[in-house]
C-alpha cells in the first residue's frame, strides 16, 4: 500500500513537473536571450549568455530611455483601486440581489450581468466623449472608472451564483441577534464570500493589468501611462533591435510577477478559508 502510494506520488510530480516546464520554458527563453548579443540570439537561441554572447545593452536602452517606475506605479494604482471597487461594489450588489426580494429584482439582476456579453471597447467613442466632458482625459481616474464598470458584471455574476448557494440560516440568526443589514453584510456576508473573492479578483485583475486599448485611448499622456502601454510603445521604437525588445518584455514580466506574489497569499488564503469552512 505504502509503495503504491509512493509510486503514485512520483507519478503526480512527474506530470506536474512536465507541465511546469511547458509553462516556464518560453519565459525562460525570453529572459535568457534578453542578456545576449543580437548575433547570439539568432545563432544559438537556447545557449546561455556567457562570455562573448553576454550583453546587457538591451536593458541599458530600456532603463535609460523610459520611465518604468512611474508606469509601474500607474498600473499598480489603477489595478488595485479598480479591484477594490469591483470586489466591494460587486459584493454589495450581489448580496442585495440574492438576499432581498424587491420590485424589478430579476430584471436588475439580468441587467447587471448583461455587460459580460459585449466588450466595452465597442463603446469607445461615446466613452471617450463622456470622459472628456467630465474633464478626466489623461487621468488614472478615467481608467479606474472604466475598468470598474467593465469588471462589475462578471463579479456580480460569480458572487450572485455563489451567494444563492449559501444557506440563509447564518444571516437569519444574525438578524435575530439584532444586527443591522449593513453589519450583516460586513460581518457575515463578506467572510462568507471569501472563497470566491479569489476567483473574482483573478478574473478582474488580468484584463485590467494587461489592457492596451483604454490606456491608448483614454490616457495616453506620459504622466498616466501604464506599463503595458509603455512596453508596447517601446517595442515599436526598436523593430530590429531585438536585444531591447526582449529586455523590455522581460521588464514587463517582472512587475506582473511582483503583483502576483503580493496577491497570491491573499488569494490562496481566500480559497483555503472556504475549504475549512465548507
Amino acid at each position: 500500500m505504502l509503495v503504491k502510494q509512493r509510486i503514485s506520488s512520483v507519478g503526480i510530480h512527474a506530470v506536474l513537473i512536465a507541465y511546469s516546464v511547458l509553462a516556464l520554458f518560453p519565459l525562460a527563453l525570453i529572459v535568457l536571450n534578453s542578456f545576449k548579443t543580437r548575433k547570439a540570439i539568432f545563432r544559438d537561441p537556447t545557449g546561455l549568455p556567457l562570455g562573448e554572447s553576454f550583453s546587457a545593452k538591451g536593458y541599458d536602452s530600456v532603463l535609460s530611455n523610459s520611465d518604468f517606475p512611474l508606469y509601474f506605479g500607474n498600473s499598480l494604482t489603477v489595478t488595485v483601486v479598480s479591484l477594490v471597487l469591483i470586489l466591494l461594489l460587486g459584493a454589495m450588489a450581489s448580496h442585495a440581489l440574492s438576499e432581498y426580494r424587491f420590485p424589478g429584482d430579476t430584471f436588475l439582476g439580468l441587467y447587471l450581468v448583461l455587460g459580460i456579453m459585449v466588450p466595452i471597447r465597442l463603446g469607445t467613442v461615446a466613452l471617450l466623449e463622456l470622459i472628456v466632458s467630465m474633464g478626466l482625459a489623461n487621468t488614472l481616474t478615467a481608467l479606474i472608472l472604466v475598468y470598474t464598470a467593465q469588471g462589475l458584471p462578471i463579479a456580480i455574476f460569480i458572487f450572485t451564483e455563489f451567494l444563492r448557494s449559501v444557506s440563509k440560516e447564518i444571516k437569519d440568526s444574525a438578524r435575530i441577534d439584532g444586527l443591522s443589514e449593513y453589519r450583516i453584510f460586513f460581518e457575515v456576508v463578506i467572510p462568507l464570500v471569501r472563497p470566491v473573492i479569489a476567483t473574482v479578483a483573478v478574473f478582474s485583475m488580468i484584463p485590467i493589468w494587461n489592457d492596451l486599448w483604454f490606456p491608448l485611448i483614454l490616457s495616453p499622456g506620459e504622466e498616466s501611462r501604464t506599463v503595458t502601454l509603455g512596453v508596447q510603445q517601446f517595442i515599436g521604437q526598436y523593430t530590429v533591435n531585438w536585444g531591447a525588445v526582449l529586455a523590455s518584455l522581460s521588464v514587463a514580466i517582472l512587475p506582473v510577477l511582483v503583483m502576483y506574489v503580493i496577491f497570491s497569499k491573499q488569494l490562496i488564503r481566500g480559497i483555503t478559508a472556504g475549504a475549512v469552512k465548507g
Binding site: Y100, L108, L145, A149, L152
Partner: peptide, 27 residues
C-alpha cells in the same frame, strides 16, 4: 428598505454610466 438602495446604487451607477450607456450609444 434604504439599505437595498445603498447596496445596489454604486455598482448600478458606475456600470450604467461607463458600460451600458456607451455600449448602447454604439449599438
Amino acid at each position: 428598505r434604504w439599505y437595498i438602495l445603498v447596496f445596489l446604487a454604486p455598482a448600478t451607477l458606475i456600470y450604467t454610466i461607463f458600460a451600458i450607456y456607451p455600449i448602447i450609444e454604439s449599438l
